[in-house]
């Protein structure tokens, strides 16, 4: 009986001692090797949407928060959260936030049904897949294929291919993440600010004759807009008109003058 008691006492003593020693070690280690985390980072992570979509250009929400605190990344860098989140981050960091201009993807092609099809495509519905065959079914090599690669790329369902076979952006759903812009194989989609009113709805660098053959609304590089613009904001380079949005006053003269109706004002 007494043997058993000694054994019990011994075991308790050894285990208890071990526990105490390891406990002390842990306390020392946690004091000594403490990782300094900035409480601000955690606070910012709290207010971010938490989708980890990567649209900001960093490896997720936590990474973005860290960069904002430590490396001075722009506090309005989260396109999904938008102005509200930027304001909250600004509150945490004590910075003033000015509401930036909203920008949405903009389709720089008005081809669609106005553009001639060279052949009848039957196959996998994807712009890149169509373009693997003979540079696409359209008569124009620069235009929108209208097969919806951008629609499939959009995680928020903000894009749709309309009756005119061109993508349309639903601004209520769009978060300006830019995934559609990255997915477009012909670079038709670009970000356009709401204040930029006048746009050339064509990307074709083909010569006038070739454009006329394939599309009824394509830019033929006639330079009428360039001559008519009072602000000298339009320049035709390589058979395509480009508008300098800084100079443009949205007077609408070029829209009236364009013989192909390829410039639009909104």
């Amino acid at each position: 009986m007494s043997e058993l008691v000694t054994l019990l006492v011994q075991a308790t003593a050894i285990l208890g001692g071990l526990g105490l020693a390891v406990g002390v070690m842990l306390v020392v280690a946690s004091k000594k090797f403490k990782v300094e985390t900035n409480p601000l980072v955690d606070e910012i992570v709290e207010v971010l949407p938490g989708a980890n979509c990567g649209a900001c250009g960093y490896a997720g929400c936590a990474d973005f928060a860290e960069r904002v605190v430590n490396e001075g990344a722009p506090i309005n860098g989260c396109p999904v959260g938008g102005f509200d989140v930027a304001k909250e981050i600004g509150g945490i960091l004590g910075q003033e936030v000015v509401e930036g201009e909203e920008q949405y993807p903009f389709v720089r092609c008005n081809g669609g049904l106005n553009c001639v099809d060279r052949f009848d495509y039957v196959g996998f519905e994807d712009c890149k897949a169509v373009m693997m065959l003979s540079d696409g079914e359209k008569g124009c090599n620069y235009g929108c294929m209208g097969r919806g690669t951008c629609v499939r790329a959009c995680p928020f369902g903000a894009l749709s291919i309309g009756e005119d076979r061109l993508p349309h952006v639903n601004k209520n759903l769009c978060t300006s993440c830019g995934l559609c812009i990255a997915s477009c194989p012909n670079d038709i989609l670009v970000f356009a600010k709401e204040t930029e009113k006048v746009h050339v709805l064509c990307m074709s660098h083909d010569k006038g004759k070739a454009v006329k053959e394939s599309c009824t609304v394509g830019c033929i590089g006639c330079k009428i807009c360039e001559k008519s613009c009072p602000e000298e904001a339009i320049k035709v380079t390589n058979f395509l008109a480009e508008i300098d949005q800084e100079k443009c006053t949205a007077c609408g003269l070029c829209v009236e003058k364009c013989p192909q109706n390829s410039i639009s004002i909104r």
């Binding site: 196959g123 996998f124 994807d126 890149k128 897949a129 693997m132």
Partner: peptide
Amino acid sequence: HILQLIRYAKD
């Protein structure tokens, strides 16, 4: 269109 899809993936 299996072959087309495979070519698409390869590409």
